[in-house]
Nucleic acid binder design. Structure first.
Lengths: 190, 190
DNA sequence: TTTTCGTTCCTAGCGCTGCTAGATCTCGGA
DNA sequence: TCCGAGATCTAGCAGCGCTAGGAACGAAAA
């Protein structure tokens, strides 16, 4: 029993090691630099070991996405609860969301942009995703009026996402970002 | 002189052929299916010929993006000019934008999502991009009030982009799309 | 203690990618 | 008719995600 559990523990540790290595490599050099060979080298195992833990590269990315999303949820919550009123809350959450994308572009991408095998928008979605969405929803709630909170939160989220991704892709000038965000918030909150 | 011009004409025709083939292949099977080998086979030339016309695969994608963006601009213009008033105009342009993304996901991606070597948000941006942006701007103008039209149009565009990409990536449920769009428009137009 | 057997892990390799060097072939001009 | 320049192809490089098959290890049985 003890041997069995030791092996399982070591295996879990190694899995964690792989996820962390992937995350660090992605943050440092972007996902295009995260190859199975480099990842294997980094964790000091051979390539096939990765496949005994994950179905493929996509599954590794999905694991990083879930882990990162939990971090994002924490930051959103902190921004929301630190605000003195609803107006500061939604502005603070927006700013925290954008700041996360700015500080961790690779993590943002793997959660929200890249094609990873993860269930979204369903009850089977990872709790971390639901938690992050829930934080946005709580910030939006005071402004929902008679509208459906879920759909309105999705709309709010989509706008933030659009602002972030278009700017990061070089499609929008960085200089106007703060202005765009405040214009959006002004219209959204009425 | 005549031989020279004939060669140039044939060269231009072949370049057009490559772009069209790339576009068709991308629309039919997605950009991951557009490899230089398949493209070369399709235009019935060898792989290196592609590189005598374009710097690389990215440049071919950029060419498709510009061409497609011109189409998008036409559709946006049609939607806008067909509308009887400002409210129908911005709703119609929004619907046309979303419909384009829905009917031509590969083209939408290469214009707005994928990493292609094209200048955006600068005076050197291709006219087609500026034309499409201009159509959005004209639809937004009646609702700009004292706000900067450029920044507000960017914000409007970003929201549409977010709605489109999150839904297409499976992050937002399709069923609520119309509701989300109308919620956004209601808030945006005040 | 020795042998067996199951698991774990690595080496090697497949088919694919974008891209390019160098040989070959075509064709206009002398 | 022959030459030379340009166009085009064949073949190959380094890298990708992924996997088959064998070697080495360690726990249980003799």
């Amino acid at each position: 029993m003890s041997i069995q559990s030791r092996k399982e523990r070591e295996r879990a540790e190694r899995e964690k090691l792989i996820i962390t290595a992937a995350r660090e490599l992605a943050e440092a050099e972007g996902w295009e630099a995260v190859t199975t060979r480099r990842l294997a080298e980094r964790v000091e195992y051979s390539q096939p070991v990765l496949y005994s833990h994950f179905k493929g590269k996509g599954a590794i990315m999905a694991a990083v996405a879930v882990e990162s999303c939990a971090d994002l949820a924490v930051e959103l919550r902190a921004a929301r609860t630190a605000a003195p009123d609803a107006r500061h809350a939604i502005a603070g959450v927006s700013a925290a969301y954008v700041a996360f994308a700015d500080r961790h572009p690779a993590l943002y991408d793997v959660i929200f942009s890249l094609d990873v095998p993860l269930p979204f928008a369903t009850p089977e979605a990872p709790p971390a995703l639901q938690a992050a969405f829930g934080e946005l929803a709580e910030a939006v709630r005071p402004y929902s009026g008679d509208d459906d909170l879920g759909a309105l939160t999705e709309t709010f989220w989509a706008a933030l996402h659009g602002l972030v991704t278009l700017m990061r892709g070089g499609r929008l000038p960085r200089e106007l970002h703060d202005l765009r965000l405040s214009l959006f918030l002004a219209r959204f909150t009425g």
